[in-house]
Amino acid sequence: MKYEVRFSGSGGQGIILASVILGTASALYENKETVQSQAYGPEARGGASKADVVISNKPIGYPKARAIDAMVCLSQKAATKYIKTLKKGGIVIVDSDFVELPENKKYKMIKLPMSSTTLDRMGKLIALNIVSLSALVTITKVVSHEALEKAVMDSVPKGTEEFNLEALKIGRELAEKSLA
């Protein structure tokens, strides 16, 4: 079984880090075949960027994602650009504060007010990527929460562990509320 996840947004939102953390959780803590890759332009900020994680129980030949099972969209530009890459029946999780996509039977859309909730509860938006990652993991169960937590601890700067654990909690709660 192959499972493909795409994080999309604007350069600077931390989508590559989110994908690296998911990849680390999957590769090192769940021992699954995993490839992480990304595509972005020459600019340091802005643009539409994507970061992908391909997870499989068999060795992965072609390393790039082609039929996305689940996607996170943190900017309108990225959502508009990449929604067509979602496979039929795929899940798209959008930051409903900034992103609108048409309802469509071809995909399952989950709208979460991620930016406003992150800002309200944490006072800054910097953890939006971790919030969205946690929401994705809660909804798709692509890795366990334990593996995710370990990978977050591996990847974030020292001194920000508590902050990022809080972000994981927020993302999980938002997702659980939407599933309820």
Partner: peptide, 9 residues
């Protein structure tokens, strides 16, 4: 660029 930038275990 693909081989240089992608991550694998």
């Amino acid at each position: 660029e693909i081989i240089g930038h992608m991550r694998e275990k």
